[in-house]
Every structure is written in C-alpha cells, then in structure tokens.
Computed example of a mutant assay.
Amino acid sequence: MEFPFYDSPDTATIICCHILERQAPILYVSHDEDDGMWQFLCGETHETDEAKLVSLKWVFDLDNSVSTLKDMPCGYYAERKTQNDDWIIRKR
C-alpha cells in the first residue's frame, strides 16, 4: 500500500511505548490543532516519559488502517474500541 498522508513520511509523530513495543494496538489518534503534530496512542493514560518519537511512515507501516485518517484535520481526534473497529472521528 502506498503512503497516503499529505505530511512527509519522515514527519515526527508521538507514539506511546506500548505501541512501540507492540504490546498494544493504536486505538486513539490525535492531530493536534496547536502544532499539527500527530499522536498515536493505545488509549491508556501515560506518563510523559512513555511518549516516544517515530516517523509517520513507521506508524503507517505498523498499522495501515491509520491511512483512513489521512484527511483528518488539525484539532480532531479518532478513536476505536479494538483494532478491528472502524475509526470514529470527532472535533476536539
């Protein structure tokens, strides 16, 4: 599958350690309004030191289902209950 995002594949994104270590799926995605940063999280509460930086391409390669969020504007977030559910997108 071709990289679908408008942002560069090497765009830095925030990901939680649980996803990075492949202990949990991506269940929450935020496209921050203030700086345009993408965040990919497992849906649990985290401490600041549990946030890691990876490229947007790394996230896409890990879970192609995030490609459906490529048009999600800044100031919105998406969530799902399980990895097999559809994304529900909401304005923050």
Score class of each variant (00 low, 15 high):
residue 30 S to T: 09
residue 30 S to Q: 09
residue 26 I to E: 11
residue 38 W to G: 01
residue 59 V to N: 03
residue 57 K to G: 13
residue 50 E to V: 05
residue 59 V to C: 10
residue 50 E to K: 11
residue 40 F to A: 02
residue 40 F to K: 04
residue 54 V to T: 11
residue 60 F to R: 14
residue 28 Y to W: 11
residue 65 S to W: 13
residue 50 E to F: 02
residue 63 D to A: 15
residue 56 L to V: 04
residue 42 C to W: 03
residue 40 F to T: 06
residue 64 N to W: 10
residue 28 Y to S: 04
residue 27 L to F: 06
residue 40 F to C: 04
residue 55 S to T: 15
residue 41 L to W: 00
residue 54 V to C: 05
residue 32 D to A: 08
residue 28 Y to H: 12
residue 47 E to L: 11
residue 41 L to M: 13
residue 25 P to D: 15
residue 45 T to A: 11
residue 38 W to K: 03
residue 53 L to Q: 10
residue 35 D to R: 02
residue 56 L to W: 10
residue 62 L to V: 07
residue 52 K to A: 10
residue 63 D to K: 15
residue 33 E to R: 04
residue 37 M to P: 01
residue 34 D to T: 09
residue 51 A to H: 12
residue 26 I to K: 04
residue 57 K to W: 15
residue 49 D to F: 03
residue 29 V to P: 00
residue 34 D to K: 10
residue 40 F to H: 04
residue 64 N to S: 14
residue 55 S to K: 12
residue 29 V to D: 03
residue 60 F to M: 06
residue 32 D to H: 08
residue 52 K to I: 05
residue 33 E to V: 02
residue 31 H to F: 02
residue 55 S to L: 14
residue 35 D to G: 07
residue 63 D to W: 14
residue 61 D to P: 09
residue 54 V to M: 09
residue 53 L to N: 13
residue 34 D to A: 06
residue 42 C to K: 02
residue 35 D to Q: 06
residue 43 G to W: 09
residue 56 L to G: 02
residue 54 V to H: 09
residue 54 V to R: 14
residue 28 Y to V: 07
residue 37 M to G: 09
residue 60 F to Y: 15
residue 47 E to M: 12
residue 40 F to P: 12
residue 57 K to Q: 15
residue 53 L to I: 14
residue 32 D to P: 00
residue 45 T to M: 13
residue 51 A to Q: 15
residue 38 W to C: 00
residue 54 V to P: 07
residue 59 V to G: 06
residue 43 G to A: 02
residue 61 D to A: 10
residue 49 D to N: 03
residue 42 C to I: 03
residue 53 L to G: 09
residue 30 S to E: 11
residue 37 M to D: 09
residue 61 D to L: 09
residue 58 W to G: 11
residue 49 D to H: 04
residue 31 H to V: 02
residue 41 L to V: 05
residue 64 N to C: 09
residue 50 E to P: 13
residue 50 E to Q: 12
residue 41 L to D: 00
residue 51 A to M: 14
residue 59 V to H: 03
residue 47 E to S: 12
residue 47 E to A: 15
residue 54 V to I: 08
residue 62 L to Q: 13
residue 54 V to L: 12
residue 63 D to Y: 12
residue 45 T to G: 10
residue 36 G to W: 03
residue 44 E to P: 03
residue 50 E to G: 02
residue 50 E to D: 13
residue 26 I to A: 05
residue 25 P to F: 10
residue 47 E to N: 09
